[in-house]
Computed example of a mutant assay.
Amino acid sequence: MEQQLVIFELANEFYGINISVVESIIKMQSITQLPQSPAYVKGVTNLRGSVLPVIDLRSRFALEPKEDTRQTRIIIVTMGTIKVGVTVDGVSEVLRVSDELIEPLPPMVNSVNSVFLKGIVRLENRLIILLELGKVLDLNDQQVLEALSAQKA
Rank of each mutant, 00 (worst) to 15 (best):
K83S: 07
P38D: 08
V54I: 15
L127V: 09
I128F: 02
T45N: 05
D56M: 03
T72Y: 03
N46G: 13
V21Y: 11
I26D: 13
L47N: 13
S30A: 13
P53H: 12
Q4H: 12
G90M: 04
E67Y: 01
E13W: 01
L63A: 09
P38I: 06
V121S: 01
V88W: 06
N110D: 00
L148R: 01
K118C: 04
L148V: 12
Q143M: 09
S24V: 01
N140W: 09
K118V: 01
I120C: 04
V144M: 12
D141P: 06
V6R: 02
D138E: 07
Q36F: 14
Q71L: 11
A153G: 13
V97C: 12
V112A: 11
S98F: 00
S20I: 13
T32W: 05
Q33W: 01
F61C: 04
R73M: 07
T81G: 05
I25Q: 02
S149A: 11
L127I: 05
P38Y: 04
R60P: 02
L137W: 10
R126I: 05
T87Q: 01
R48Q: 11
T78R: 14
G49D: 09
V6M: 14
N110F: 00
I7Y: 01
V51Y: 04
E146A: 10
V22D: 04
V54F: 07
Y40E: 04
